[in-house]
Simulated scan of single mutants.
Amino acid sequence: MPDRPAMTDSAITPTRPTDAPDPAALFQLEQPLSARRIVVAMSGGVDSSVVAALAAQSGAEVIGVTLQLYDHGEAVKRKGACCAGDDIRDARAVADKLGIAHYVFDHESAFREDVIDRFADEYMAGRTPVPCIRCNMGVKFTDLFRMARELGADCLATGHYVQRVIGAAGPELHRAADPARDQSYFLYGTTDEQLAFLRFPLGGLPKPYVREIAAGIGLGVASKPDSQDICFVPDGDYASLVKKLRPAAANVGDIVHAQSGETLGRHKGIIHYTVGQRRGLEIGGQAEPLYVTGIDAQRQAVLVGPKRMLAVGAMTVVETNRIGPLPTTGPDTQLTVKVRSLAKPVPCRIGGPFGDDAATRIVFDKPEYGVAPGQAAVVYAGERVIGGGWIEGTEKA
Rank of each mutant, 00 (worst) to 15 (best):
C82E: 04
M124R: 07
P331I: 01
G324D: 09
D3A: 13
L202Q: 05
K244Y: 09
F111D: 03
P345I: 12
Q31G: 11
L26E: 08
I230K: 01
L69F: 08
G167T: 05
G64R: 03
A6K: 10
P331Q: 06
A84F: 01
G99S: 11
V46M: 07
R266C: 10
Q68R: 15
L241Y: 03
D237H: 10
A35V: 06
A53H: 03
R78T: 13
A358P: 04
G285N: 14
M137V: 05
R361H: 12
V115N: 02
V256A: 11
T18K: 08
L303C: 08
H267K: 09
A248K: 13
I350F: 02
G374R: 04
A248Y: 09
K243P: 00
F111I: 08
A297P: 02
G59T: 05
R78Y: 12
E172I: 12
T336Y: 01
A20N: 00
H174C: 09
M1D: 07
V51L: 04
D226C: 11
A148W: 00
R149V: 05
G159A: 05
F197H: 06
K140I: 14
H72D: 13
R146I: 10
G64Q: 02
E383L: 13
L26A: 11
A301Q: 15
G44D: 02
M1G: 14
E193A: 13
V363R: 13
R149C: 10
S49G: 10
L198N: 02
G204F: 03
T128C: 03
A258H: 15
D3P: 12
G220V: 05
R266P: 04
G218P: 08
Y380E: 04
K307R: 14
K244D: 11
T336P: 00
F141L: 15
P289M: 10
I38R: 06
R4E: 14
Q277G: 01
A35F: 06
F145A: 11
